[in-house]
Design a binder for these strands. Structure first.
Lengths: 228, 228
DNA sequence: ATGCGTCTTTAAAATTCTATGAAAACAGCA
DNA sequence: TGCTGTTTTCATAGAATTTTAAAGACGCAT
């Protein structure tokens, strides 16, 4: 399941919430709605949205205070929604940590464009997709495998099998599990395929492939990627 | 000596240039002025400004084209200055890589505030518009490629593919990724195009194109630019 | 030690993918 | 228009990968 971009809307006007929910969901964003600042802050903490659309005019708290409170700990991009206010206000808000500013009423198209800009700016602080196990380094983002620092060329099937094994490090995978995951359900009996490919993988990644250090055979069951 | 924040102003109206120069220098920014797009692009490459204020209405080039050209290689924050234009225009520009948009006439105060926001967004790492990998030198600003110091003549498609590969050095790019990025989404199956162009590129940049050192084939998957 | 099932290794066959030369279509321009 | 350089299309040889088959090795139970 793909992780959708989460947007928190903090606005007390029901029509605006409805409009934003509709148009943003139509663009495949995940929407969370809050009708006041306190709820908004709470939801920002619990859902960790990527972007917060913050209306300035909230019933329970001054917008700038809310902004500052959120900015203290949240790395979300914050876009202020507000009816035309003074230049001074804008400046204060931008300096208080807002990332952009849209005056109401706004065109949905422009909002979406500014949203895309905000998302571009957001640090994609995603986890490191590099798996290092002793001399083997697997970079899932770049689809590369290195052994002792040097790229090794794995075929498509070899790579996919290795990836599966490594992602399930220290866990026995049965022949059936591997076959079905790589070739599909109808191949669950073709154990011989696997034997050939495990052999090829070992030749490429093991130092001494007659004594496998990484990919171990569990006779009658399957294989395990494990160091001990 | 402290490194001042550099701002490049590209605008053909002398009054605006003067106004911006005065007000920005008063705020301790370093200002570079350009009165047309070509000069602007050149200065953007040579001075590596942190922020570029780009007027849309330039004598020698359409604003969006200029924006795209700069965005190709520069990591500067780009703020568009323009007289009130349509929402569609704004959207296009933001999506083409602009980071913000200010309509003329603007208040200096707001400009300064948006500038501060832009600077907050700016990645601290600055991108060098020249990429050198062994004997290959790619100048993103001038769209030229040298091999062992000599200019080589690449067609537009060849250049774009090479740029894509180099900017994703050490990362396997699938046929689909490359095709979609170069030709658009509807071409994602035209693997044969790619083979022809990779062949041409190899002829031009590889020392021995039967044994490629830079562009390597990952059979069934795609290509990778890597020295290892 | 023998036999049995499982695993490893090798290698040839079948299949799929890649490289490349050349022709055709197209685009830009004097 | 005709020229030039570029992109697209096509055909085919060659390379790499996957599949299939088979021989041998290993562990284990009898």
């Amino acid at each position: 399941m793909r992780n959708k971009t989460k947007i928190l809307v903090i606005d007390d006007e029901p029509q605006i919430r409805k409009l934003l929910k509709l148009s943003l969901e139509a663009n495949d964003y995940d929407i969370i709605l809050a009708e006041n600042a306190n709820l908004g802050i709470q939801l920002a903490a619990s859902h960790q949205p990527d972007v917060i659309l913050l209306d300035l005019n909230l019933p329970d708290m001054d917008g700038q205070t809310a902004l500052k409170q959120i900015r203290e700990w949240s790395s979300a991009q914050i876009i202020i929604l507000s009816v035309r206010s003074s230049e001074q206000d804008k400046i204060r808000l931008l300096d208080a940590g807002a990332d952009d500013y849209i005056t109401k009423p706004f065109h949905t198209g422009e909002l979406l464009a500014r949203l895309r800009v905000a998302l571009r700016h957001k640090e994609p602080m995603l986890e490191n997709p590099i798996i290092i196990i002793e001399h083997i380094e697997i970079n899932l983002a770049s689809r590369t495998v290195k052994k002792s620092g040097h790229l090794i060329n794995l075929t498509s099937t070899e790579y996919t099998i290795l990836k599966l094994l490594v992602q399930n490090k220290d866990k026995v995978l049965t022949h059936k599990q591997i076959l079905e995951s790589i070739w599909g359900n109808s191949f669950s009996e073709e154990t011989q395929y696997l034997r050939v490919f495990i052999g090829q993988l070992r030749k490429k990644i093991e130092d001494d492939y007659s004594k496998p250090k990484y990919i171990k055979t569990i006779s009658g069951v399957g294989y395990i990627f494990s160091l001990d």
